[in-house]
Design a protein around this nucleic acid. Structure first.
Lengths: 372, 372
DNA sequence: CCATCTTCCTTCGAAATCGAAGATAAGGCG
DNA sequence: CGCCTTATCTTCGATTTCGAAGGAAGATGG
């Protein structure tokens, strides 16, 4: 969408503006120009006027929304053994979300082709007739080079190194394509739920430990690995060699995989990070102690980062995040050791967007490409 | 300066554009509009056309510069016992820079009033007649709340806590006033010398350890303390309690003050960080070992941050930075332990802007306020 | 030396944007 | 209920910006 119209559409779609007046304030355009463009957008069927908003002391705003028939986005979040798939409208509202089994170890060609078929499937089953698909996107559990859309040196994705994911996915759909690290997508999704926070750290605690960073309201990608904290050296009595070849990486002590391996050795049967959470909720002391120690280690790493970028909030998500002791010990470590100025208004809490955060984030980022 | 004209002026002043064509490319305006505005700016005496630039295969650009008579900026960089003072033109080029003794421990009122007098002094001696002062700014060796221009909980500035520096300085000059942490100013100054780097970490190694962060080309302030790494816990055999009350802060091992105190105990006479550098250059093994250890500790802290924000470059400045072993051991630690993706094109080197980096940074930031 | 290409800059009618004024639609208050 | 205040949205003439076309000045290459 060209020029001013695209800007307005983006503001509405992203949820930043709901009325002509808000659009004028946020876009910097004159109110009269906004009205003209909005009429055009309504005329072309992309926006709809829907009832009135609440008054702020004067005339009530006429609420604007993206037309449900403006288009659809198909998004996915790949995990090691499952994929979450969803269909969103252009304002990022999910029409349908499903989780399906999917082995990432089957390699990139098979996985991506499977994903494309699943998207077609969802469209046929849940896509309103006549509404066009406008973009596709997926999250990848490994580093992604933002420039090329290739996976770069992933640690747990055999066969994917340097594979041009965006290209392959684009071959199925002649549309804007987004390929992004899963923690980054999660961060982008959470960012919409924390509108007052300009700087945000979003932690994904599952089998691995991922982290996405929002600086100044925008996802910070760096060279594609920004937010990676899993191979930070932690202070520890023992000494463990991580898969990356270095000693005492955070991941080797505090990731879901590390916790599971210890618990399995101790005779518990855990297969997924959620099983660890279940043990903690059942009050199994070994599990609780382990999780608490993981939180302490993660928190100690975060102290450095909190002093450094002064985030407005730290959001903890991922399959391990429901474990209360985890977030409690993260909080304790951060509040104890960070500078007062950095923690004064710092909020540390669990996800506001829930398990679909990454899908919502994919929608949010895709929007920019679709309405460019 | 209102609207489009201000944007163009800023681009020229910041050194991003030198011709109408470049302005058109960078501002997003049409070439014809740029020409119109530039004519107006030349007419009002703010811009001057000065010779021709070098051809890039076609007609040579007509080079634009800020008029030397467009205005002056008075800037300072406060240290514990000295202040650097300078007069810049609006393009950030220094007319004069001086270092004068100044005790920050004399308290804020005395220091700021002294600074105002020194500015008047410089203007009288070096300010071209008829050229107006357009803004004043200063760097402070402690945290500054960007919103209020107050000093917040400084560690080595008795009597300054919560003092409204910007307000007091503004009472002397009815002009835009900038008050900013000194490491942040240094970062802003270096950023101009690293135009291809979007993300930059600038380390100030002197009596203390400061760090400024440039993300996406802009200074990241966070809550005012962003970049603070001096109170990060380091791995160490012994145990030292820092002035902040915690154990084993980086500052307690690797700051110039810490090195000086150890060397003094060993019978060397060192009064300033530069004396430490001199010992190292004289090949005194005790000093070299100490500096190398400091570099290693700093480097280990940086590994976390490099993995996290993936900077394009790390710039080391400050009075300790001429010591070769310091930067060498920082490099060693970072390259050894960071992710390959993060270090692939990472440059780690000493300052490009030299000792005036902070003054140049103050000019750069002040410009935004002056041309707003 | 001359044709051709590239880049830089200007000209001028068309289109978009602005902003002041006013119309419209609420809530608050005596 | 009338009147004031606040806020939203529209109308319309003035201003700014755009973009296509072309002129200016130099590079390139026979």
């Amino acid at each position: 969408m060209r020029g001013a119209q695209g800007d307005l559409l983006r503001l509405v779609a992203a949820g930043h503006a709901e009325s002509r007046a808000e659009l004028a304030r946020l876009s910097g355009l004159a109110a009269s120009s906004v009205s003209l463009r909005v009429e055009e957008l309504i005329g072309s069927g992309l926006l709809v006027e829907e009832g009135a908003g609440t008054s702020r002391g004067g005339r009530r705003p006429r609420r604007l929304r993206l037309s449900p028939s403006a288009g659809l986005l198909a998004v996915a979040d790949l995990g090691a053994h499952h994929a979450r798939l969803g269909l969103l409208d252009l304002s990022g509202t999910p029409l349908v979300v499903e989780e399906r089994p999917c082995e990432i170890a089957d390699g990139p060609e098979a996985t991506i082709d499977w994903m494309a078929a699943a998207f077609e499937d969802l469209l046929a089953a849940h896509g309103p007739p006549g509404v066009p698909l406008r973009g596709v996107g997926t999250g990848i559990p490994g580093p992604v080079d933002p420039a090329t859309g290739r996976v770069v040196a992933p640690s747990r994705m055999p066969g994917w190194n340097n594979f041009p994911v965006a290209e392959r996915l684009g071959a199925h759909f002649d549309l804007p394509v987004l390929v992004e690290n899963d923690a980054n997508l999660m961060a982008a999704g959470e960012a919409r739920a924390w509108p007052k926070c300009e700087t945000l750290m979003v932690l994904k605690t599952g089998s691995g430990i991922g982290c996405g960073v929002i600086v100044n309201g925008a996802l910070h990608r760096g060279r594609g690995a920004a937010g990676d904290i899993s191979h930070v050296r932690v202070r520890s009595d023992s000494s463990v060699t991580c898969s990356c070849g270095h000693d005492d990486c955070l991941e080797a002590y505090a990731s879901g995989a590390a916790l599971m391996s210890v618990l399995n050795e101790q005779g518990f049967e855990v297969r997924r990070p959620a099983d660890v959470v279940a043990l903690v909720e059942d009050g199994v002391p070994e599990a609780t102690a382990l999780v608490r120690n993981a939180g302490r280690l993660i928190g100690e790493v975060l102290t450095v980062l909190v002093n450094f970028i002064n985030p407005d909030a730290i959001v903890v998500g991922g399959s391990l995040s429901p474990a209360e002791p985890l977030i409690a010990s993260i909080r304790a470590a951060v509040y104890e050791r960070c500078l007062p100025l950095a923690t004064r208004d710092l909020e540390i809490s669990t996800t506001r967007s829930g398990p679909d955060a990454a899908l919502l984030g994919a929608g949010s980022l895709l929007l920019d490409a679709v309405l460019a």
